[in-house]
């Protein structure tokens, strides 16, 4: 039963990836693209957690944690860039 649930969840997260990626391509504004990137990294965290459950390995959490950290920093840096025109003062 759990393997069926995992398959369904993989399919849903994959569909979420596709939709976010379409939004990333479509735009229309830079903020939309940044939001799509933000969603993509959270989806990547979800995918890694699912892989960790399926393969029964604790290693994937380190990767998920790192992606969560780096993705947040990236989103903040890009948003700051739109607000200010530069990042490093």
């Amino acid at each position: 039963m759990l393997s069926t649930a995992l398959t369904i969840a993989f399919a849903l997260v994959g569909a979420a990836f596709t939709l976010s990626f379409l939004r990333l391509l479509k735009g229309p504004d830079a903020t939309d693209r940044i939001l799509a990137l933000d969603t993509l990294y959270i989806n990547a965290v979800a995918l890694l957690v699912l892989l960790g459950i399926q393969l029964d390995s604790p290693l994937y959490f380190e990767a998920a944690l790192l992606i969560a950290l780096m993705g947040f920093v990236g989103t903040v840096a890009l948003a700051k860039f739109l607000l200010r025109g530069d990042i490093i003062e």
């Binding site: 995992l6 849903l12 569909a15 979800a46």
Partner: peptide, 19 residues
């Protein structure tokens, strides 16, 4: 299974809203 499927559904709905 319930937690895994509802997690997937919510992730999907979030991206659906984005689209």
């Amino acid at each position: 299974s319930l937690l895994v499927v509802s997690g997937g559904v919510f992730t999907f709905i979030g991206s659906l809203g984005l689209w």
